[in-house]
Design a protein around this nucleic acid. Structure first.
Lengths: 109, 109
DNA sequence: TTTATTATTCGCAAAAATACGAACAATTTT
DNA sequence: AAAATTGTTCGTATTTTTGCGAATAATAAA
């Protein structure tokens, strides 16, 4: 009987990042911010098919995960990409997804 | 008033993939498979701190998303990475996360 | 054929995510 | 000071995810 291996912190971190990306609206938000530098909440609200309060929640989650930053510019709020954290996430995903597989196996489905 | 933009299929696809990666156990599974070529359900079951039935569910989700493949080798089941789909996911995430941001903005938090 | 072995599916319970409108806060304009 | 503008937070309802053990299926071994 092998030991019940604990999940590593890095595995938890990757999962946390992936979870934050796990909703179409949040992907759309990131793409908007990537393409147009920065956006105001109001601008995104007009484009995305969700209520303003729901948008706030999604923005909060992306902020929590470190993907974006928000700046209050009264009376509106400007959001933009956190480029460093995006790059860091990119690295982590790449490390996982580009895994050098030592052996390739045949499957029947 | 701008149009209520629909979410693109690609955005949905990225979100789907990210969602499948959004759990520590599933990240651990992928890393095991990446490092040790292929694994049997039973082997993973002994290492991971979850019930066998729960493991089956996680494996099903990873399979559904295309990250892994399962082969029945009676009486056990062998799982392995779907390298092509992993690479494809890697590409999609990279495209999103490496976004060429045209303007960097200053923030106060 | 009966008994083991291995893994999935089922049925259920608990927790988390999603979404909305109303209420609230902060600032600007009138 | 009152009204308008912009976003967030609150309260709630619905759906989805997560997790388990029991039951089931499929095959191998006795």
């Amino acid at each position: 009987m092998l030991e019940q291996n604990a999940i590593t912190e890095e595995q938890k971190q990757i999962a946390r990042l992936a979870k934050a990306l796990g909703h179409p609206i949040r992907i759309a938000i990131l793409e908007m911010l990537s393409n147009q530098a920065c956006c105001y909440h109001g601008d995104m609200s007009q484009v995305l098919p969700i209520a303003k309060s729901t948008l706030s929640q999604h923005l909060h989650e992306l902020k929590e995960a470190g993907f974006i930053q928000g700046t209050i510019t009264p009376p509106s709020v400007k959001y933009c990409i956190n480029a460093e954290n995006m790059a860091q996430a990119d690295k982590l995903f790449h490390k996982l997804l580009s895994g050098k597989i030592s052996l390739q196996c045949k499957t029947n489905e």
